[in-house]
Amino acid sequence: MTVADVSLDRLVDWLTRFRALVTENQGYLTELDSAIGDADHGSNMARGMNAVIDKLGEPQTVDALFKTVGMTLVSSVGGASGPLYGTFFLRIGTTAGAVDSLDGATLSAGLRAGFEGVISRGKAEPGDKTMVDAMGPALDALDASLGSGSDPAAAAAAAFEAAQRGRDATEPLVARKGRASYLGERSAGHLDPGATSTAFLFQALAEALA
């Protein structure tokens, strides 16, 4: 493992930081969701990530770690968030395999596979006002940064900045997927809760790798 590799401890730290962010911002996420959804995104994400951290134990490999994360989220989070985030983490683990660290390329490949799983499961496209609108730009920025020679820490910081821009860009959009789509034009003028929690996901990654 080189200095630039992302260790299992760093990956666990990512998840722990994500749990802290969604717990700290549970009320905010619920407030966003109350405007255009079921008013449960904050509570669902906090409950799911608390269950994840409770179950982690001492993972020995990346695939085992993310299998635990994914299965826990699928089983403990209601609504769309559990299956979508669960699929995201499961695909990361499957792609990474039984290794104990990730370099920039394998981190990118895992995240990209997770993103493709989210798209496949949720059937959302860019511009639909979903978590895809934050995750897609984040991964594009991550890949661009890695492609220019940056280490995973710098690439994760670039991904977080792009995730924030993607999140903010959902505010004027009219939702075309999920519960928010039922509101039609009235869904415009609100940040998407899933895109907002996705920005927290990349904030946590950037902080864990910094």
Score class of each variant (00 low, 15 high):
A96T: 13
D13L: 10
L8E: 03
R10M: 06
R10P: 00
F18Y: 11
Q26G: 03
N25I: 01
A124T: 09
L107I: 02
T87D: 02
M45A: 05
G117C: 12
D5C: 02
V62N: 03
L56C: 01
F88A: 01
D38Y: 02
N50D: 15
H41P: 03
A98E: 15
S120I: 04
F89N: 00
V118Y: 10
S101C: 07
N50W: 05
G86M: 03
G42L: 05
A51K: 08
L111Y: 00
P59G: 08
I53M: 07
Y85H: 11
V74N: 06
V3Y: 06
G86V: 08
A124Q: 08
N44E: 03
A105Y: 10
L11P: 02
E58I: 12
L8D: 04
A20T: 10
G117E: 08
G48A: 09
R47Q: 07
L15A: 06
T94P: 09
R91L: 12
P126D: 03
G110V: 07
S120Y: 13
A64C: 06
A46K: 10
L111S: 00
G82L: 04
V118L: 14
T2D: 12
E31Y: 03
S81I: 03
S75V: 03
A124F: 07
A113R: 04
G117V: 02
R112E: 14
V62H: 02
R10A: 11
V62K: 08
I92Y: 11
K123H: 13
S43Y: 06
A20S: 08
V6L: 01
I36Y: 01
E31H: 08
A113N: 10
L90I: 14
I53T: 11
T16A: 12
T30M: 02
R112A: 14
S81N: 05
K123P: 06
I119K: 15
E58M: 11
G37F: 06
I92M: 11
G42F: 04
Q60L: 12
S75C: 09
L15P: 07
Q60G: 15
A64F: 00
R91M: 11
D40I: 00
G93M: 07
V77S: 03
S7W: 00
M71H: 09
G117P: 02
T106K: 15
E116Q: 13
K55H: 14
V118K: 13
A80V: 10
G70M: 11
S101F: 00
G114E: 08
F115I: 04
F18N: 04
K55G: 12
D54N: 12
T72D: 00
A80I: 09
E58S: 12
L90R: 15
S76H: 08
E116P: 13
N44A: 06
A113W: 14
T94D: 15
D13C: 05
Y28D: 07
S101R: 08
A109Y: 05
K55S: 15
S75D: 09
S101N: 10
G114A: 13
T16Q: 13
V3E: 15
L65G: 05
Y28S: 06
A124W: 05
N50V: 12
A105I: 11
A80Q: 03
L107N: 10
D63A: 09
L29S: 06
